[in-house]
Design a protein around this nucleic acid. Structure first.
Lengths: 242, 242
DNA sequence: TCAAGTTGTCTAGTATCATAGACAACTTGA
DNA sequence: TCAAGTTGTCTATGATACTAGACAACTTGA
């Protein structure tokens, strides 16, 4: 691993951080596993413990590791590369990464359309909607919480259906919609709120990626609109420039 | 070119030096040509002139540029022409270019042969090997990092011997092997990894030439196999069609 | 309950990094 | 010869990097 003396123009903490990151990248440290203690790392790189702490701090800030006081520093799961395409299926993306996609219904309620929701769905303000809150996981790691609104008239009992199929794709198929595509996607970032923090198993103050999207059928008619909150430290979006 | 603020762990003078070196490497500055003045360089990178001077000083120390008081700073270093022959000696090649060849042992460890290594060395999978990591320089410029594997049975204590003689030729001579030749050579290219980048004093993202080769004795029996990573911007391979 | 081991936080000192300005020494071209 | 432009050297100041030591806060397992 051999670190260079100071004078190389690359800070020691950066060399240590790169070394650990490389260890994670090529599997020397597995996700969930405990890293060696700070004192031990300092020994192997022959630097001060504070220098190791600085390296770990940058890795923690980027979500690659997580420090637990009194216990140790643990490797976090690598981020899922999440392509944003016109055909975006959570199950396909997670499955492609060799992890098992899961869905979990949190709640299904009725509520009237706000003006903004009505506009996105091509309905009138106050039209009856079904609001579905769902948690999506890869294996046992929560990835995102999504709130989906559908017109109650077109998709009666959508909540109960979703509870059974646990997938948006299958939900729409149940109503005879074979194909759909993403009409628009907007991405923003925010700090997780207390409710989502519990659902996503995130510490308070951590960032989330907020994705607003509307799916339409083959004719371009709006089917549903979704606001999803992704745990930023577990996902990175990939935009393909085609 | 975009230089990062301080805090990235890479010193500004290093970023400037890398930028200029890159300019030389991909031909923006040609050998013999005058670089822009220090004040102008400072302007384009938005740093102090002293910072530029430090960057140029390291490049001068490595022989890439030469400063002439009152006149300017000029690009020196042409690439080393590195012939790939059946008799290939690093020390001879570098010495022929009027530069002093140096070798530096990075590590010497024991490890069992993988199937691939065993095949190349004519041994059984799992046979004990000695793995030597060495850095090779011309004057003070790192040229390549090589990982060499030898059969531990035939070359006991090879690590300690290499540390003393710092040359593959002399290492083999120590075991009574007067002559050897290259049996096979394969050349590939890759992006430098973080560890080699530090060793080769290369900026991240720069290409390396990866050379896999096996040396055999006069009878054609494999002696050692090597995977070397050459700083692509400092070397060009010459294949002589004879 | 306790000891050992871990991460978190604080103070302090030294070295390096980066900026700023001034002037000397030298080269080049008019 | 002279002016403009170049690199070389000096002093000075503040910010950052690295090391060192001590202790607090916490977790784990015996």
């Amino acid at each position: 691993m051999s670190i260079q003396d100071t004078g190389s123009g690359v800070a020691l903490w950066r060399q240590v951080a790169d070394g650990i990151e490389r260890g994670i990248a090529d599997g020397r440290f597995v996700a969930g596993e405990k890293l060696p203690g700070e004192i031990e790392i300092a020994g192997t790189y022959r630097v001060n413990r504070h220098t190791v702490r600085r390296a770990l701090a940058t890795l923690a800030e980027r979500g690659l590791v997580r420090a637990e006081r009194g216990s140790g520093t643990y490797v976090e799961a690598p981020r899922i590369a999440y392509p944003l395409r016109s055909r975006t299926r959570f199950s396909e993306i997670v499955g492609a990464g060799g992890r098992e996609p899961r869905g979990q219904l949190l709640s299904a309620t009725d509520e009237p359309a706000t003006r903004e929701l009505a506009r996105q769905l091509g309905l009138k303000t106050g039209a009856p909607l079904i609001r579905i809150e769902a948690l999506r996981l890869a294996d046992r790691t929560p990835i995102c919480v999504g709130t989906t609104w559908l017109a109650a008239g077109r998709f009666p009992d959508a909540g109960r259906v979703y509870e059974r199929v646990r997938s948006t794709t299958k939900l729409l198929a149940h109503y005879g919609i074979r194909d759909y595509r993403r009409a628009s996607t907007r991405v923003a970032a925010a700090i997780v709120d207390a409710t989502d923090a519990v659902r996503l198993d995130l510490a308070l103050g951590r960032p989330v990626l907020v994705v607003d999207s509307t799916d339409v059928d083959a004719d371009g008619k709006p089917l549903l609109t979704t606001r999803a909150r992704f745990a930023a430290e577990r996902v990175e979006f990939v935009i393909e420039n085609s």
